[in-house]
């Protein structure tokens, strides 16, 4: 474990916590007898969260952590896997099933056919992988899928007029975690002999590059202290 990977995992954990906080805020709002002004805004405007991206991430974790019960790495590793699995599936459940949270989900805007991402990633994993076994192909599939899983969310943000802070921070943290992982891979390449994982590295690089324009607008909005806005 190195500082880059720990920082990456913590950033990833933070992104999940921000999303859970946002869902909690929406839930607690509607619980009130009178909608406070913030609540009114929250409930009226769409949450800006893409269910499609959340579903893709749940699939990413489900196919990446198949070894959670067969290969024990460390307590930290197992706990983090359980957190990511539990949170991603519960977030999908909240947005799909929770009587209040699902009202803040704008399915008319979140129209990205994520099936068009799943199939190519699966085909690519069947062709390019480190070993043609069930677990290895699904693990490789999870890497390719994670690289593109943010696309429905980024497209939804372009359509969302006012991106609220929590959503912007969620996407920023999600992009930052993989950028930190790239530093971790560079560090491990120079410190560990034979540490070469081209598939992981290229997927992670593509994933981070997809955030490039978001990062640009995110930092510009911070610098100019204006509301985050993505050009359509």
């Amino acid at each position: 474990m190195n500082i880059f990977r720990l920082a990456g995992d913590m950033t990833h954990l933070m992104s999940v916590l921000v999303l859970l906080l946002k869902i909690h805020t929406i839930k607690s709002c509607a619980g009130k007898s009178y909608p406070c002004s913030l609540c009114f805004i929250l409930l009226e405007s769409s949450s800006g969260i893409s269910l499609k991206t959340q579903e893709l991430y749940a699939l990413v974790f489900a196919t990446r952590y198949l070894d959670i019960f067969t290969d024990f790495i460390s307590v930290y590793n197992t706990i983090m896997k359980l957190i990511f699995l539990g949170s991603s599936f519960s977030i999908v459940w909240y947005i799909r099933r929770h009587k209040i949270v699902r009202r803040s989900y704008d399915k008319d805007q979140d129209t990205f056919r994520h099936f068009f991402l799943v199939l190519p990633c699966l085909l690519l994993a069947l062709i390019i992988n480190e070993k043609f076994t069930f677990k290895e192909v699904l693990w490789t599939f999870s890497l390719y899928l994670e690289a593109v899983a943010i696309l429905p969310q980024l497209i939804l943000l372009q359509r969302t007029r006012n991106i609220d802070n929590l959503t912007g921070q969620y996407v920023f943290l999600l992009g930052a975690y993989r950028a930190l992982y790239i530093l971790n891979w560079i560090y491990r390449y120079f410190t560990e002999p034979h540490y070469v994982h081209w598939i992981t590295w290229i997927s992670g690089l593509v994933q981070t590059l997809l955030y490039a324009d978001f990062f640009y607008y995110y930092f510009s909005s911070l610098k100019n202290n204006v509301k985050l806005k993505l050009p359509a």
Binding site: R5, D71, I73, S74, N77, K81, Y181, N184
Partner: peptide, 10 residues
């Protein structure tokens, strides 16, 4: 057969 190293990253 050559065993792949364990996946120690999340």
């Amino acid at each position: 057969h050559q065993e792949l190293p364990l996946k120690d990253e999340l």
